[in-house]
Computed example of a mutant assay.
Amino acid sequence: MEALASPIALVGYGIATLGPALAVGLIFSAYLNGVARQPEARGLLTPFTILGFAVAEALAILGFVLFFLT
């Protein structure tokens, strides 16, 4: 059973990195959609977009680090 633990963990962390990648795409598309519809809201949307990118990337880095800790 322990022989399967490492490959299963590898697949699990690989799948876990797809979530943040999709999140970055969704955040960026929402930002572009908001700015395209209302250009004067750019100043309001930019900080939220950067914060969203940071959180999504932090989750990806956390998953990557946890792979090496196990």
Rank of each mutant, 00 (worst) to 15 (best):
A54R: 07
I50M: 12
G52K: 06
A16G: 07
L22T: 11
G63L: 03
G19M: 12
G25E: 09
A54D: 02
E2H: 03
A36S: 15
L10R: 14
I15Q: 01
L62N: 01
A23I: 08
T17F: 04
A9D: 08
L18Q: 05
N33W: 02
P47Y: 09
V11Q: 01
Y13F: 12
G43W: 03
I15L: 15
S29W: 12
S6N: 09
I8T: 09
T70G: 07
A3H: 02
L22H: 10
I61P: 00
A54I: 06
F28D: 06
G25F: 13
P39W: 03
A30D: 07
I61D: 00
F28A: 09
G63S: 15
L18K: 11
P39I: 02
L22M: 14
G25I: 08
L4G: 01
P20M: 00
G43A: 09
E57M: 08
S6K: 15
A54G: 08
G19L: 15
L59T: 12
G19S: 06
L10A: 14
P7D: 00
P7R: 03
L26C: 04
N33H: 11
R37P: 01
G52T: 10
V11Y: 08
Y31F: 15
V65K: 03
E2G: 10
G12A: 15
F68S: 02
F48P: 00
E40M: 04
T49N: 07
L4W: 08
L22C: 09
G52R: 05
L62R: 12
Q38I: 04
R42A: 12
F28M: 11
L26W: 12
G14K: 07
Y31P: 00
